[in-house]
Amino acid sequence: MGKNPPEIMLRQTILRPPVYRISLVQLGLSVLIALLFLLRSEDAAISALAGGLICTIPNAYFIYKAFLHTGAQQTNAVLQSFYQGGSWKMILTGVGFSVAFKLIQPLDVLALFSTFVLVQCTNFFVSKIANL
């Protein structure tokens, strides 16, 4: 037996919001802040870029996982994917900080954390960025 045509149409009509814009905005902001820190020193710029990427990359993975499934019929899959994305976001952030603290020498801690916090603050404007 084939699938019910209205059901197929329904699945195709559920549009995902343009959430990829959040990652683009975060990436752009990271580069912008790193360029501003370049006025201070090259080490500060590298640390700032690392801080921005530590926020952007796990968040991009979380966005991918959060919107992997859509629709009321797939609510269980949505939740499962959402929880996995949230857990991995925290793990990836921890790994990112550990790698930055180990590999970037000399590290400008102020630049790293200030960029991380500023890029993290884009979450307050998600509804405007992605039309949610």
Binding site: A72, S98, Q120
Partner: peptide
């Protein structure tokens, strides 16, 4: 019928929910 919209709102709140603990993780590792 509101499930996709609710999913978007949930993502919105999850972003806010995550922000402060992530900074805590960074400071703790530092």
């Amino acid at each position: 019928e509101l499930a996709p919209m609710l999913q978007g709102k949930m993502f919105l709140i999850a972003g806010l929910l995550d922000a402060v603990p992530m900074i805590g993780v960074g400071l703790g590792l530092y």
